[in-house]
């Protein structure tokens, strides 16, 4: 799994590629926690290149939601593939997250 982070003062995009599982999800967590420590107002996780995510992956994203919520930041998911969407549905998290079709939309929409 590969994690690429691009960010400025107000927004950050975490692009993940590869499988997110019990062994790789700590890498994604590291990126999320570092950005939330900096209190970046908007964090978007782009999952365009993720074909498989297990429940440690979705739990890590829930942590992102918790961490950003503490400073009233915004945590969004973009570009979910159907296979990963099914895992979100399985965990009933498809309605918990703000999920966008594209990274651009996730960055454009004003926080709710």
């Amino acid at each position: 799994m590969q994690v690429i982070v691009q960010h400025d003062k107000n927004t950050a995009v975490i692009s993940i590629s590869g499988d997110v599982d019990l062994y790789s999800s700590p890498e994604m967590r590291k990126a999320i926690t570092q950005l939330s420590k900096k209190k970046v107002p908007l964090i978007v996780v782009n999952l365009k290149d993720v074909d498989y995510m297990d429940s440690s992956g979705v739990a890590t994203l829930v942590e992102g939601l918790q961490l950003t919520g503490k400073y009233k930041g915004c945590f969004r998911i973009a570009c979910l593939k159907p296979t990963v969407w099914e895992v979100f549905e399985l965990a009933r998290l498809d309605r918990v997250f703000e999920i966008y079709e594209t990274e651009e939309k996730a960055l454009k929409v004003s926080p709710l």
Binding site: Y23, S25, P26, R29, S56, A59, T60, V62
Partner: peptide
């Protein structure tokens, strides 16, 4: 696993 306790609890 080496997952953080916070991840395990979720």
């Amino acid at each position: 696993t080496k997952l953080e306790e916070s991840t395990i609890q979720i």
